[in-house]
Design a protein around this nucleic acid. Structure first.
Lengths: 222, 222
DNA sequence: GCTCATATACTCGTCTACGAGTAAGAGTGA
DNA sequence: TCACTCTTACTCGTAGACGAGTATATGAGC
């Protein structure tokens, strides 16, 4: 018997969730949604692309999560359609948001991909590149820490939870990277010499040639 | 004068970089690339989707980054095209990989989006959901830590750098979450009562109504 | 009162991601 | 040896993401 597939959302773009959340507060037209999201600083945690916004609104309507409640017009500007959330939409929003908050999902950060393919570059080059990243990361952290402080002065902390999270994660990355670089510099990271050898002789060291076979049965995170 | 736009890659899917890296080692046919990537455990850091793989290979060829070097056939199985990397492709690979390693980019983790929209759910529910996440996160961490230990027994550490990174980041998230939950439980997080009030009375508390305006000029991370 | 810049409010078309489907050979057990 | 399943090796169709473009309106400066 086939195992029931885990529920798959009709829409997967987080922007759709943001739109639902906007319409749940009060009926709005698309442009206003974008404005409010921006104004509340949500564009730092959710990518708001205008091309996507209108597609997403259309699809939400198609699936019955939001419904056009009429149109308004400001002067001779183009007419704007105002959307409100439906009951189905409200349910979808609650369910989706609950899932986002309670179920950790593996996403694939580009940096992780970079790390896993770094073997295609010579070790010294990689070391230099990572040092550059660390510097940029440290800069970013100090800038954002400052901004966050300013915000804390005027806003209750619940509104800054996501910014605090992002900052914490960046700090963690910086610390990890510092550790890695130290181990690379001091040659404490096993395999560094093999890697260097490979870039000098052009061939992988003897002890690596059968690694692929020996590790084929290894439990790998998936 | 328009500022020169930052270089935009012809292909953005990290799988394309993995393909380049595979072809750089030795010419291969698509299916073999996928096999080798899997066998080396890269599927943990790069999403390998067969649908995408063939599209990506095609596009890489179209842009001259890889070139068909001929075909082979094993028994009466379908014919397979073998691709090798070109000089342009090698340059693209180096450049792309260098960028991935040295330039931190903001990605938009779903959880961050969830946090920033959590206000659409009642506070007690959010607390429960986050506790559920923390439990799952802790489980995941301990499983992966074990797997990583086993791998360390047979593999040089450079091959496990990306797994170590992923584990560290998960630990950091768990720790941050633990802190947040503590602050929520002890009511140390400012704004919690306002949020609760909002879910009881149905209206935002007095001191929030003009927050939107007061914060409109705030420097926001972007 | 005219021009230029900027904000408003979308539309369009392309490119791409990816799930689901397909089909043939190889192995395996009865 | 024959049925069945598993693995190999792709193909196809479609939905959606997003950049770039467009067109009007409003305000600011001269």
């Amino acid at each position: 018997m086939a195992q029931r597939r885990i529920k798959q959302r009709k829409l997967s773009n987080p922007l759709a969730l943001a739109v639902l959340s906007m319409c749940a507060e009060t009926p709005r037209h698309p442009y206003e949604m974008a404005q409010v999201l921006r104004q509340r600083g949500k564009q730092a945690s959710i990518k708001i692309n205008f091309g996507s916004l209108y597609t997403v609104v259309q699809n939400l309507e198609k699936h019955g999560f939001i419904a056009a409640e009429g149109t308004e017009r400001d002067g001779r500007r183009p007419e704007r359609t105002v959307y409100g959330i439906t009951e189905t939409g409200r349910a979808e929003m609650r369910d989706w948001l609950s899932e986002l908050l309670s179920v950790p999902v593996k996403e694939y950060p580009q940096f992780e991909a970079g790390l896993s393919l770094a073997g295609s570059l010579p070790p010294d080059e990689v070391e230099a590149l990572l040092r550059k990243r660390l510097a940029a990361l440290d800069d970013g952290v100090s800038v954002q820490a400052e901004v966050l402080e300013e915000c804390r002065a005027v806003l209750p902390e619940i509104f800054l939870v996501e910014a605090d999270y992002a900052l914490t994660m960046q700090r963690a990355e910086a610390e990890w990277l510092r550790g890695l670089l130290r181990r690379m510099e001091t040659n404490t990271l096993t395999g560094m010499d093999g890697w260097r050898e490979f870039y000098v002789t052009g061939a992988p060291p003897q002890e690596w040639v059968d690694l692929d076979e020996r590790t084929s049965g290894l439990p790998r995170p998936d």
